[in-house]
Design a protein around this nucleic acid. Structure first.
Lengths: 202, 202
DNA sequence: ATTGTACACTTAACAGTGTTAAGTTGCGTG
DNA sequence: CACGCAACTTAACACTGTTAAGTGTACAAT
């Protein structure tokens, strides 16, 4: 952990420049619609330079996804700390998750919907990534509800995944099926979360 | 609606051959990983021939998605007719939906997850497609539950979309996050549907 | 101060993509 | 038989991700 040389600092700086450009383009136009050449153009380097900092295009995507996970995890951590009632914390956490997706649809797609698995690293495991942190916070919220005997269910893992699935379902449908005549978004979110919570109450 | 000439029949036959080849490849390897040239090779025609029958690659995808919707709609129609209890019908319908996705993951991805919207026909509306039929069956099942006063909610549309979102959430998570340590699939499906139903009961 | 070399970066190329314009073939009708 | 139309193919364009080879320059050692 010694002091970084100038070279090392410059390397990291350019890496960040590339990441910034890629993130902006991916979020604006979607992963598939952005070419390495476009990213290179934006940062005024040759396309191959990117390959000196990232293995390939998918690695770029992964780096950006990790950031997204981290942001989401931080947000959910704050919510859990601020909330008083465990059930309220759970609901707020789920709401934050959905709203995060709706606010950053392309980012959400990148991370949770289109997430293509790397052919070179096929065993990349989400459970070893920052994504697990966000999941962990949801899990903790569920655990608190169960411990305080607010729910009749006892399988923390299953309940957590149920809430995640519900949140993800709403988010991804709203994002990808733009033209479908959905009812009011907030109504849908609240009704789903409230119904699940009601169904779990003793 | 006169008798079809031989030419017309031949045209339709080749169209079907193309569709069959494309479906098989798409389902096996995913939309993005199949090229027009590969499809052409499989049917032993030149790549450009396909363009005499379909506008572009996405049109091929759409044609296949419509088939998927039709199959799913048929299945849900049968379930609804066979079931005796409206709540049981709703649960069975949702289960069929999820199982359909798990059994044909690439097909499900094509239709409900990656469904890219056509740049040339940006206003392609899912609500005008066969997909609406499948949705209609789900809606009818919910309507029956509400009419027979099994649920305290009255917004048919919202409740339908809630079940759809839950089913879609489970399905797409299970399909796309293969490496995540999910609990038993059937447990997750049943728990989610049962919890929603319990939460809706009077 | 000069050399050697490691590193950052670029150029050129490969093999592939979706798609189109222009050409070729062969069948059915006048 | 000759014409025209339709089916189909060949060749090409403009792109894609990615790699091998080449260029130049800043720094360390002599």
């Amino acid at each position: 952990m010694g002091p970084k040389t100038r070279r090392e600092r410059e390397r990291e700086a350019l890496r960040e420049v590339i990441l910034d450009a890629a993130r902006e383009l991916f979020v604006e136009e979607g992963f598939e619609n952005v070419s390495m050449r476009r990213i290179a153009e934006k940062i005024e380097y040759s396309p191959t330079t990117i390959y000196l900092y990232f293995e390939d295009k998918l690695s770029l995507l992964y780096a950006i996804c990790e950031e997204t996970f981290a942001k989401l995890a931080k947000r959910m951590e704050i919510i859990r700390k601020e909330a008083d009632h465990p059930v309220a914390a759970l609901k707020k956490g789920c709401r934050a998750y959905v709203e995060f997706g709706l606010k950053h649809p392309n980012h959400y797609k990148l991370t949770f919907i289109n997430h293509p698995h790397h052919p070179k690293d096929p065993d990349w495991k989400m459970e070893e990534s920052l994504g697990m942190q966000a999941y962990g916070h949801l899990r903790a919220a569920v655990e608190a509800c169960i411990e305080q005997k607010m729910f009749h269910a006892t399988d923390v893992e299953a309940v957590t995944q149920m809430f995640w699935a519900a949140g993800h379902g709403i988010t991804s449908l709203l994002i990808t099926m733009e033209h479908f005549p959905f009812v009011n978004k907030n109504l849908l979110i609240d009704m789903t979360l409230d119904t699940l919570i009601d169904g779990l109450k003793k």
